[in-house]
Design a protein around this nucleic acid. Structure first.
Lengths: 329, 329
DNA sequence: ACCGACTCTGCAAAGGATTGCAGAGTTTCA
DNA sequence: TGAAACTCTGCAATCCTTTGCAGAGTCGGT
């Protein structure tokens, strides 16, 4: 039932080679013929079978993207970027969710390997030794994870952290808590790095945690921060910050009156919280697009010239209502 | 470099047919031989090339799923269910986001058609006439959209609506606003249907809208509802409800003291709002899984027996802190 | 001892596309 | 006018699997 290249060839009165070339190497076929072929193909509704094409070219025209958890609002946005850019570059994308599970992640890469030209690993949970098991099975691009010799897009947080610190300092905060995320995560290291670089003599930083980067961890973190007597809290991410705010509300601590709160990520719900959360916005969608660019580049480049292996996106503090002038102690 | 069936055959000292059969029709090959083949394949790290297999079987082992907008928090959860169930059934899934654009949606289905066995359309934005253009190009399963002769999983809202109404009635509310979502949406019709079925003589319903099902539409809706003098609001979805609550807070209307608010969907941020939102929880992940089941069924069944074409999931009111006893008027 | 029924295996033909090679025309230039 | 150089097209091999068909053994039964 599906129309093949043969059908088009017969209908157009040419050989299959000509039809094939009309699509893939247009300048090899006479203008007139090409027009005719293309027109016939259009009329018949022909679309090349990518599997068959892949069989001979070795390229599938697909790639995969693996995320740790779709229900974490951070990932769908980068996925959206990946998806959009992939479509522009005429690739289709396989999606997989590894449920925060590194073993599953390996299995997914291996399962995908044969049907994709490459895969994008988003905040990979794999240990270095686990990574070695998948390196080489297919082309890999990482998001928010640095791996030797592999293209990476990083969402730098240092700039945003500095902005956050300066913002709080300007509001008169002198003692601020930072709530750590998962110790192993690249993102957390990156945020801490930003913290160190933004050190000021007029501000004391109290590090707490690590905490799970989730809403549920917020209350515990909030209690610790209150006990530390800080006037502002910078949370590893928005989810955690939201949990903190929820607890503060329960304990009758007004935000930003008595406590200012800053998050990271600018997930959609950050702007919808009460009060709307001041946060550092990442360029998730851009990151997704950049990852695709890196992958396409990796695939098309001769291999001799490596191209750029690393793209770093900066971020931006978005001041909303959860931060205000420091409370008098 | 990748290991093919030939390599395994040579290494195992058998023909390719035997290797193939060892995988696909195990009982046709002698136990001993099969073990040997399987073992050799394992040792060599052989994984069948699905493209080549698909070429001859006509099945790709993939399917697609198209969602209107990944940044709408409703969809990632159903995507998660799709993804998980697909993996269990040994299918890989292509993801596409049509950006709420029906034309794009058509193009995506057509582009996917050749490389999938079927596609799942999630809250399809296509008009009936547009739908006809894609019907037949591949097997289709719908989520939250009814299409003649096509398998569908519906997240019924009638039950949840009745629970919401009864809940509000029990709290003494006598005049309640319903904020309509998009008029064309199946979900909105479904919610209104629930509304009619739950009609009570002791409660008056004021219908407002339609409104865009987004946070930004909330303030406008809230103002209208206040003007109507209702004591409770049922919003088309959580996003809208959250926007309403935000406006109520700005206007100094206490929730639930002066106004109760109910949403639909139970998106993650519903529980994190202040106050946490009372809402009707849909079984998104289950819906995703069900859609895959329907599709697999559609693909494997002889065609003679249609199997069930329709799966309806019920929903559940989750009472949180945004609803309370009606204010004395 | 022979025949039919079984079990297992291999040969070879698909399946839909791409591509090296060669042939048929056409043009250029001496 | 003839040869060389181009331009365009078609033939046929190839990619990796699956599968219909047939052949080679084995076994049981008569």
């Amino acid at each position: 039932m599906p129309v093949t290249i043969q059908d088009v060839a017969r209908e157009a009165g040419v050989s299959v080679s000509t039809v094939s070339r009309a699509f893939t190497v247009p300048d090899l076929v006479k203008d007139e013929t090409r027009q005719h072929v293309l027109h016939t193909a259009e009329r018949l509704g022909y679309r090349p079978n990518r599997a068959a094409r892949g069989l001979i070219t070795g390229k599938t025209g697909n790639f995969g993207v693996i995320v740790p958890d779709l229900s974490n609002p951070f990932f769908p946005t980068v996925l959206k970027g990946v998806q959009a850019r992939a479509r522009e570059a005429d690739y289709a994308v396989f999606l997989a969710d590894c449920d925060e599970n590194a073993t599953e992640e390996i299995a997914l890469v291996q399962a995908m390997a044969k049907q994709v030209d490459g895969v994008i690993l988003c905040s990979s949970r794999m240990s270095p030794s686990q990574l070695e098991r998948v390196v080489g099975t297919t082309s890999l691009v990482f998001i928010n994870r640095q791996v030797r010799d592999h293209p990476t897009v990083l969402m730098g947080a240092a700039g945003g952290m500095r902005q956050a610190i300066d913002h709080l300092a300007a509001l008169g905060h002198r003692r601020v808590a930072f709530l750590n995320g998962p110790k192993a995560s690249w993102s957390n290291r990156e945020r801490r790095r930003g913290l160190r670089h933004s050190a000021r003599h007029d501000m004391e930083i109290v590090e707490l945690g690590p905490f799970a980067p989730r809403f549920e961890a917020g209350p515990h973190a909030a209690d610790l921060a209150i006990a530390e007597g800080v006037t502002a809290i910078i949370a590893f991410n928005d989810l955690l910050a939201l949990g903190v705010m929820s607890r503060l509300a329960d304990r009758g601590v007004s935000v930003p009156g008595e406590m200012s709160v800053v998050g990271f990520d600018d997930i959609p719900m950050a702007g919808m919280a009460t009060p709307p959360l001041t946060t550092v916005a990442m360029q998730n969608e851009r990151a997704g697009r950049a990852a695709v660019d890196l992958l396409v580049n990796l695939l098309t480049v001769s291999g001799a010239e490596a191209g750029d292996l690393r793209r770093e996106l900066d971020c931006q503090l978005i001041v909303r209502a959860s931060t205000g002038v420091a409370a008098r102690s």
